[in-house]
Design a binder for these strands. Structure first.
Length: 592
DNA sequence: GCCGTTTTCGGCCCGACTGTTTTCAGTCG
């Protein structure tokens, strides 16, 4: 959908970066950043707005509206191009390295003419930074570590970026005459947290129109390969898209083959060999005669091998074949199971949409319940106060019932302090419907301290969900060094759920950690952590991650009916302010 | 550059941490 919004967001963010690198007014840089975020999260396609309506977007004034309008009209933004001419693009890449900001990047460029990550790594090896003011041995070490972290993510992109592009390509192919079926396959269909390239599969009798159409996509930068059945392109963001067209008759076998994973495919082919069959992207064949048996649907292919259809998110060779043969595949949690979202923000703190807008967008998604959980005062930058949160609660109570089928829950996202304490005293917290608690700072404590800190938060009678438990940012910040098994055991013991945060840069917990936590008997909350109405959609990445961890709806508290969810949320909180609700026995997570 | 239930000018997220310094700049959330 809002592709122009994303383009404008990227452009304004680039401008903000370049302003701060060149030592421009910090508030000016901040203004561009804020406008970039607001436009990226704005639900209306900006290419349909004139300068006057652009100014209705929060944090967009005359100057930025004019620049955006100029870009939409001409495809250029003169201000950005001017400053690009002054600073090589590689200098901006440097500030993506953790601990390296605009000031240091500029100093590296001016003093040593470094304008790429590779040049920086070489310069450190050659000890060229030793005489540079402000750069000591520790800084060198941090930079090298940061570069390593970035490279470990490789050329892969976050799932959100890949999904948006893939859905756009699929939509474009579906508009081509003769398209019988079209979908994306590969690691994206398996919902991996990062994606290397995008595989799009089309079923059609004649491949030529598709081979042609894909080279006319507006964001194409390069055609890598162009053949009869397959065309590969690179987009202007550097992402590779492989388009393959197969005859409608081999759709199922092709989809199975191109979805992978490689390890899963090897297993399925082994299974075929044992049955004197041969499996390829063209179908399932008799090994001897070469006669085709099935190929039309994935279902048929798996069935002929003695397997139920295996959901793509399980196809990682993590035991799904054996479980399938035994008829013991889990009934995975799905998007349709999700009855609500339990971690979302509004513009009262760092969200971009109002309470009313967020609630309306949630209602449109058909939720049975929806929680607002703005930040609490200990995260100083959000300027929360008792008055503000109580006023918001009044507003929430007032709006509750306005959307007939959706109930509202008023919660908060608490900050877990260095010693494991949280904002507000217990009696104040008891009046929230739910509390998410998350770590936002002091990431460098030692393993013991971090572990104790999280366990103490779990033990709090009002803390229901640990938000983004490891605080990782994929490719940017490593997960906290914690004893996860200790924390998982504490969650199970205290009836505290662990979050599966659906933000594409977080996906925290990760699939592997979820599996580990489940063995401790923990329950989970799949949340969007939305900061704009558009982010509510991030829930699906959380669901995908949960599927990869073999979770069922039973494992996920926000698939439960409201009554059961409320009993879980009651935990051990002091009873007050909720007349008419009897105290129930403690509904510890993992034992319901 | 944006914004206004105190403001059309003067604020703007504010405090902490880290590593480099020798009193503080840069980065981060």
């Amino acid at each position: 959908m809002a592709r122009p919004n994303k383009e404008v967001e990227a452009l304004l963010q680039e401008y903000a970066d370049l302003v701060s690198i060149t030592g421009g007014d910090a508030y000016r840089a901040r203004a561009y950043e804020k406008a970039a975020r607001a436009i990226g999260g704005y639900p209306t396609d900006v290419s349909r707005l004139d300068a006057k309506h652009l100014r209705e977007i929060p944090n967009v004034g005359k100057s930025i509206a004019d620049k955006v309008e100029e870009y939409l009209r001409t495809g250029h933004m003169a201000a950005v191009e001017d400053v690009r001419a002054q600073i090589p693009a590689g200098v901006r890449e440097l500030i993506a390295i953790p601990t390296l900001g605009p000031k240091k990047a500029m100093s590296l460029y001016q003093e040593l003419h470094i304008s790429s990550v590779d040049e920086l790594a070489d310069a450190i090896q050659a000890e060229k930074l030793r005489n540079l003011k402000g750069f000591g041995p520790k800084t060198e070490e941090n930079i090298l570590h940061g570069i390593k972290l970035m490279q470990s993510a490789g050329d892969r992109v976050q799932i959100g970026v890949a999904m948006e592009l893939a859905e756009d390509v699929v939509a474009a192919m579906e508009r081509v005459a003769g398209c019988e079926q079209c979908t994306y396959a590969g690691s994206l269909r398996r919902m991996k947290e990062t994606i290397g390239d995008i595989d799009v599969l089309v079923a059609a009798a004649d491949s030529a129109p598709f081979m042609e159409a894909v080279t006319r996509l507006p964001y194409l930068s390069e055609v890598i390969a162009h053949g009869e059945k397959k065309t590969s392109i690179r987009t202007n963001r550097g992402l590779q898209v492989d388009l393959r067209v197969v005859p409608p008759d081999s759709w199922g076998a092709a989809l199975q083959y191109f979805t992978g994973s490689k390890a899963h495919n090897i297993r399925t082919r082994e299974l075929a060999v044992h049955q004197k069959l041969k499996l390829s992207e063209y179908g399932l064949f008799h090994a001897g005669s070469g006669r085709k048996i099935v190929s039309r649907t994935e279902d048929e292919v798996y069935a002929r091998l003695g397997l139920p259809w295996i959901p793509p998110t399980l196809r990682e060779d993590r035991g799904e074949i054996a479980a399938g043969l035994r008829g013991e595949l889990p009934e995975l949690v799905t998007d349709a199971d999700m009855r609500g979202d339990l971690h979302t923000h509004t513009d009262l703190t760092d969200g971009m949409a109002t309470l009313e807008q967020m609630i309306a967008a949630a209602a449109e998604r058909g939720y049975a319940y929806y929680a607002i959980t703005d930040h609490a005062p200990d995260l100083y930058m959000q300027r929360m106060t008792d008055d503000k949160i109580l006023q918001q609660r009044d507003a929430v109570r007032h709006l509750d019932g306005k959307h007939k089928r959706m109930r509202l829950l008023h919660g908060t996202e608490l900050n877990i302090g260095p010693s494991g304490d949280v904002d507000w005293p217990e009696d104040f917290l008891a009046d929230f419907d739910l509390c998410v608690a998350s770590i936002h700072s002091h990431f460098n404590q030692d393993r013991d301290a971090l572990t104790r800190r999280l366990i103490r938060a779990c033990a709090h009678p009002c803390v229901n969900i640990i938000g983004h438990p490891t605080t990782r940012h994929i490719g940017k910040r490593p997960p906290l060094d914690i004893d996860l098994d200790e924390v998982f055991a504490a969650c199970a013991r205290t009836g505290t759920a662990l979050e599966i945060n659906g933000q594409p840069e977080r996906l925290d917990l990760s699939d592997e950690n979820i599996m580990r936590a489940k063995r401790h008997g923990v329950k989970f909350a799949i949340d969007s952590d939305a900061h704009s109405t558009l982010h509510l959609d991030y829930l699906r990445y959380g669901v995908g991650t949960a599927q990869r961890a073999w979770l069922t709806a039973e494992d996920v508290i926000n698939t439960w009916p409201l009554g059961r969810l409320r009993r879980f949320l009651d935990k051990d909180r002091p009873r007050k302010g909720r007349p008419g609700e009897g105290r129930t026995s403690r509904p510890a997570g993992g034992r319901e």
